[in-house]
Structures are given as C-alpha cells and as structure tokens.
C-alpha cells in the first residue's frame, strides 16, 4: 500500500474512548504496518468533558509537521464534535459518524463520502457500551482499508485493551467491520 500524507481526526465527547481509538490506529500503522504515524490529542479543558479530539498523521515518509492541517478523514461521535471539527474537513474528504449521536446538516456537504454506523447502539446490544469506539474502529478499518491493514488494526485493538476484555473487544471490532462490509457496496 502506497500512501501520501493522510490526516485523520477522531472527535467525540470525553469518556467515549476517542483518544484510545486514535492511539490504536496510530499504533497499528506505526508498529505493525511499519509506516510513519504521529498521534496527538487535545489537552486542557477540552479533554475534561465536552468535545474531545485525537489526531493522527500518517505517511510513507518521515513526518515533520505533526498536526493535521485539513483532515482527509474524520470519525465523529458527538454532535458537539461535529460542529467543532467538521468545518475543517478537507473538501471531498471522508466523514464517518455514529448515526444515533450525530445529525448532519449543511456542513457535511464538504464531505465527498459519508459513512454511518450506529456504533454505540451496537455496542449496547453486545452488552458493553464502552466498546462503542471499538465497533467504530472495525467500521473505520473497512472504510480505510487502503490505508492500513485490517490485521494490524485488529492486533492493535487487542493489544491495547486489558487481557480479560479481549474477546469482547474482538466481537465489537468484528461487528463494526461486518456492518461496513454489508452496508458499503459498490466500492
């Protein structure tokens, strides 16, 4: 897989595991796919409730400037994050949302493609609401399959959660991934 500098932003509210989601993808790209990745997160009041964000820059080449300029992909899991960050999405970029938590308006028109998943609902159905981020990552993994390998991503998920929750998280990941396979057609 060849790739140019790609910027990904994860946004939601504190407690959804947004930061961990970004970290997991970064680790997958950096350690398992052996590409360059820089992961940064928002600190300060933002991180204490309210909108919270994690950013990832990935590239084939060594990355100098570590912050996103106009993200190519945004994964958004709260309405507040939607309003805060989506105006900076690259024109024609990819927008991924939790459809139960985010409703779209005109801002979303800048997105070239929009993918929706009820990630939190799925996680609740699986009996582990806190794994909504992992369901989302499964879904993201399919959407971004040209950027990083699914094996790496799944490995990174399993290595980043406590051993006793591995099975559950594997299920959550697969749920999101399968849902993407089933619903995203013609690509």
């Amino acid at each position: 897989m060849k790739m140019a500098r790609t910027e990904i932003k994860f946004g939601g509210f504190g407690g959804q595991g947004i930061i961990l989601a970004g970290f997991i993808v970064g680790k997958a790209v950096s350690l398992y796919d052996k590409k360059e990745a820089v992961f940064t997160q928002s600190y300060g009041p933002e991180a204490r409730g309210g909108a919270c964000a994690a950013s990832l820059v990935i590239d084939d080449k060594v990355i100098d400037y570590p912050y996103p300029v106009s993200p190519d992909i945004m994964v958004i899991m709260s309405q507040e994050a939607y309003h805060d960050y989506v105006p900076k999405l690259k024109e024609g970029g990819i927008l991924i949302i939790d459809e139960d938590l985010v409703s779209l308006d005109d801002i979303a028109k800048r997105a070239g493609k929009i993918y929706k998943i009820p990630a939190t609902r799925f996680a609740e159905e699986l009996g582990m609401k806190i794994a909504a981020n992992i369901v989302m990552l499964g879904f993201f993994g399919y959407v971004a399959r040209n950027l990083l390998t699914t094996e790496s991503l799944k490995k990174s998920v399993l290595e980043s959660v406590p051993a006793r929750f591995r099975d559950q998280n594997a299920k959550a990941f697969d749920k999101g991934y399968k849902y993407a396979q089933e619903t995203i057609k013609g690509e």
Partner: peptide, 10 residues
Amino acid sequence: DECVGHMTER
C-alpha cells in the same frame, strides 16, 4: 516542550 512530551510516535 509540551508538544514533544505529548506527541506519540514510534
């Protein structure tokens, strides 16, 4: 500096 301290890389 804070940025270097808080950025994550390989």
